[in-house]
Nucleic acid binder design. Structure first.
Ligand SMILES: [Mn+2]
Ligand SMILES: [Mn+2]
Ligand SMILES: [Mn+2]
Ligand SMILES: [Mn+2]
Lengths: 226, 226
DNA sequence: GACATTTTTTAGTCTTGGCTAAAAATAGAC
DNA sequence: GTCTATTTTTAGCCAAGACTAAAAAATGTC
C-alpha cells in the first residue's frame, strides 16, 4: 500500500535512475536527507511490495509497477506546482515544498481534472516535463547548459538543473526567468564566466556555476526580419 | 507540533463542541471512527500541547490555541472543497475525502491565496460557512430544517445537516441541489413526509428523514412582481 | 443505596518509519 | 593480493498513533 514515504522513495529512485543509470543507497541517502539504515529498511519494504528489485550491495531499480507509481507521483507534483504558480501566483522558488505534500493527495481522476483545469501543461514552472496520464515521459527537447553557449549566441532559458530555492532566488535577483532570451556578449576563459545582455539592454556577468545550472536553447536569429 | 491526526481530532472536537456543547470521548469515537483507548491517548497528547483542557471522565474542550488550529483546518477543508467543486467540477458528494487530506497541506499564506483565487467564498459546497482568516465563524443565517416548513411555503435549500455521500447522492437523484427553490404542496401528518413541487413542475414526496436533513430558508413570495 | 450498564482509563501490543552503532561486504590503493 | 576506506546491512532502539483486553469510574435503575 502506498504511503507518503514510499512514494517519496520511488520518486527519488526514478530520478536517480534517470540521471545516473544506477541507484546506490548512498545516492538515496543524499537525495532524501536520511540515513543509510533507513534506506536499507525502506528498500526491503519496497521490494516486498514488488515495486523495486533490490540486490543487496548491488543497487536497486524500479519494476514496472514501481515506475508507474513514481511517474504518477511526479506528475502530480509538477501539476500542483503549475497550479501554485499559474493560479495562486507563487514564485517558482516557493512551490516545491507544498508540491512535496500535495503530490500525495488525490487519485488519477483528480489529477486528470487538475491537468485539464491547467490546460494540459507540458512543463512545470522549472521547465521540467510533466509525465502524461499514460506515463509518457515526453520531453524530446535537447537542452544545453548555458555554460556551453558561445559568444554571439542568443539563448533562451528553458529549464534549470538545480531547482533549489537558493539558486532560483539567485536567478530572481538577476531578473532571469523561464523563457527569457539573453545574448552572450563575452566569455572569459580563465573562470568560465560569461557576460550576458538582457532584452532591456542591461548587461551582467554570470559565474560558470550559475551558467552550468541554466538549461537553454539557442534561438534562431531571425535574419533581416522586415 | 501539528500532525494530520492531531488536526483531525481538534476539528472533531470543535464540531462536537459546537453542536452539543459538551465533548465526550464516546462522541469522538463515533465522529472519528476510532477506539476509546485511542481517544484517551490523543487527548493526553493534545492536553500536553496546550490545545485542549481535559478533565478525566469529565470531557474535553478547546483552548484558544486549539480552537485557532481547528478553525484554520476547517477553513482549509472548506476552501479546498470549493476548489474541487468550482474549479475541477466535482460533485458535492465527491469532495469530502480529498478535502480531508488537502486540509493538512499548506500554511496561512497558501490558504489566503486559495481564498482569493476562489473569490473569498462564504460557504462551502454543502452550505457550511467558511471561517475567515481571522477565525470568524460568521454564518448569521438562521436555517430551518425542511421538516418544519408549512404547506404553501416556498423554500430554498441552503445547507444540509448530514453531508455524508449517501445522503448527498440521494438528493442528486431527486434533482435537489443547493440554491434550489421548492414549493410545499402537501404535508402528511402520520409519517412527516411532504410533497414538494420543483420549478419545472414535477412533484415528489420526501420522507421526514430527508426533510430533517435539508436546511432551508423561506423565500419571500415577491407579490405581484411587475 | 446496591447493582448492572456504560464510559473512560490503563496496560500492554503492533506497525511504520525514523535513528545509532557495530558488523559485514565491497572497492580502491599499492 | 593485502590493506584501508567506503558503502551497505544488521541489530537494536524510539516515537507516533493505532489496536485489544482488562480495570476503574460514572451513571441509571430499582
Ligand atoms: Mn512528497
Ligand atoms: Mn518542479
Ligand atoms: Mn483530515
Ligand atoms: Mn463541506
Amino acid at each position: 500500500m502506498q504511503t507518503i514515504s514510499r512514494e517519496d522513495y520511488l520518486k527519488a529512485i526514478l530520478k536517480i535512475e534517470e540521471e545516473s543509470g544506477t541507484v546506490s543507497n548512498q545516492a538515496l541517502v543524499e537525495k532524501l536527507s536520511t540515513r543509510p539504515a533507513s534506506v536499507t529498511n525502506m528498500l526491503h519494504t519496497l521490494a516486498d511490495a514488488g515495486w523495486v528489485e533490490h540486490l543487496a550491495y548491488k543497487g536497486v531499480h524500479l519494476t514496472q509497477t514501481g515506475k508507474a507509481i513514481a511517474l504518477s507521483t511526479l506528475r502530480k507534483h509538477r501539476l500542483w506546482e503549475v497550479f501554485l504558480v499559474e493560479k495562486l501566483n507563487f514564485n517558482w522558488d516557493e512551490v516545491h515544498q507544498w508540491a512535496e505534500d500535495l503530490e500525495h493527495v488525490g487519485d488519477e481522476e483528480l489529477t486528470n481534472r487538475l491537468d485539464a483545469f491547467l490546460d494540459h501543461p507540458a512543463f512545470d514552472p522549472h521547465g521540467d516535463p510533466i509525465p502524461t496520464a499514460q506515463g509518457q515521459w515526453s520531453d524530446g527537447r535537447n537542452l544545453l547548459p548555458a555554460s556551453q553557449a558561445d559568444v554571439g549566441d542568443r539563448i533562451q532559458l528553458k529549464g534549470v538543473v538545480n531547482s533549489g530555492e537558493a539558486f532560483l532566488q539567485h536567478l530572481n535577483r538577476l531578473g532571469i526567468k523561464l523563457g527569457l532570451t539573453l545574448e552572450v556578449l563575452q566569455a572569459l576563459e580563465f573562470d568560465g564566466s560569461k557576460t550576458l545582455k538582457w532584452p532591456d539592454g542591461t548587461e551582467a556577468s554570470l559565474s560558470k556555476q550559475t551558467l552550468q545550472n541554466m538549461l537553454i536553447e539557442r534561438v534562431e536569429i531571425k535574419s533581416n526580419k522586415r
